[in-house]
C-alpha cells in the first residue's frame, strides 16, 4: 500500500481532483447565479436564453461536454490557453464542469428565490427599488440562504463528477486509479478503497456543513 504513494503521484492526482472541484465550483456558482438572474428577470428575451441554457446543458451528458471542450474548442477552434496539453485540458475541463453544473446551480437558486414570499418582491417594487436593487438587497440574499441544501447537493455531485475529466486525460485521481490498476493489479482492493475513501473524505463534510448551515442560516419567517 505504501509503495503506491512512492511509485505513483497519488498526492498530485488528489490535488488535481481538489483543484478541479474548487475552481469548477466557483465557476459554476458565478455562471449559475448569472443564469438564475436571467431566468427571474422581467425581460422575456433573457428568460428564454436562460431557460434554453439550462435545458440544453442539463440534458447533455457530462462526458460529451468534456470531450467537446477538448475536441471542439482546443482541436477544431484552436482555443488554446497554453502550449502544454495537460494544462490546456485542465483549464477546459474546469470550463466544462463549470458550465454543466451552472445549470444545476441556477435551478437551485431559482428554488431559493421561490422561498421568498411574493409580497416581499412587491413591497420592494412599491418603495421604488429597481429590479437590480430588489434582487441584490431582498431576493438573492434570501434565495442563497434558502438554497443551501440543493447547492450542497450540487457541490457533492460536482466533486464526484470531476472524475469525468479523465476522458480527456486530466491527471485526476480516477485516471490514476486506472493507471495503478494497470501496473499493480495485485493491489486492486487497496487502490479502490483509497480512491473511494478520498471521495468520502471530500463529500461527507460538505453534506454535514450544508445541513448545519441550512438550519442555522434559514430565514425565520
Amino acid at each position: 500500500m505504501g509503495d503506491l504513494f512512492t511509485t505513483f503521484n497519488v498526492v498530485g492526482a488528489l490535488g488535481i481532483t481538489l483543484l478541479l472541484t474548487l475552481f469548477s465550483a466557483l465557476g459554476a456558482l458565478v455562471i449559475g447565479t448569472l443564469v438564475a438572474i436571467m431566468r427571474v428577470s422581467p425581460v422575456a428575451f433573457l428568460n428564454t436564453v436562460g431557460a434554453a441554457f439550462v435545458n440544453i446543458v442539463r440534458n447533455t451528458p457530462l462526458t460529451l461536454i468534456i470531450v467537446f471542450c477538448n475536441i471542439g474548442f482546443i482541436t477544431n477552434l484552436g482555443l488554446s490557453v497554453s502550449t502544454d496539453i495537460a494544462r490546456n485540458n485542465l483549464v477546459w475541463a474546469i470550463v466544462g464542469l463549470s458550465i454543466y453544473h451552472a445549470a444545476f446551480v441556477c435551478e437551485s437558486l431559482r428554488s431559493g428565490v421561490n422561498t421568498v414570499p411574493t409580497g416581499q418582491a412587491e413591497a420592494a417594487r412599491s418603495i421604488g427599488l429597481t429590479f437590480g436593487q430588489s434582487l441584490g438587497a431582498v431576493l438573492l440574499p434570501q434565495a442563497f440562504r434558502g438554497a443551501i441544501t440543493p447547492l450542497g447537493n450540487t457541490l457533492i455531485a460536482l466533486t464526484k463528477n470531476t472524475t469525468v475529466a479523465t476522458a480527456i486525460g486530466v491527471a485526476e485521481i480516477s485516471g490514476l486509479m486506472k493507471e495503478m490498476i494497470e501496473f499493480r493489479s495485485d493491489l486492486l482492493i487497496p487502490i479502490f478503497l483509497l480512491v473511494a475513501f478520498y471521495f468520502v473524505l471530500l463529500t461527507l463534510p460538505i453534506g454535514l456543513v450544508t445541513t448545519h448551515l441550512s438550519t442555522k442560516l434559514a430565514v425565520k419567517r
Binding site: 470531450v67 502550449t83 502544454d84 496539453i85 495537460a86 485540458n89 479523465t166 476522458a167 480527456i168 486525460g169
Partner: peptide, 11 residues
C-alpha cells in the same frame, strides 16, 4: 513529452 491522453485509442 507533450502528452494527450484519451479514454480510447480511436480518439
Amino acid at each position: 513529452v507533450n502528452l494527450q491522453e484519451y479514454q480510447t485509442y480511436t480518439l
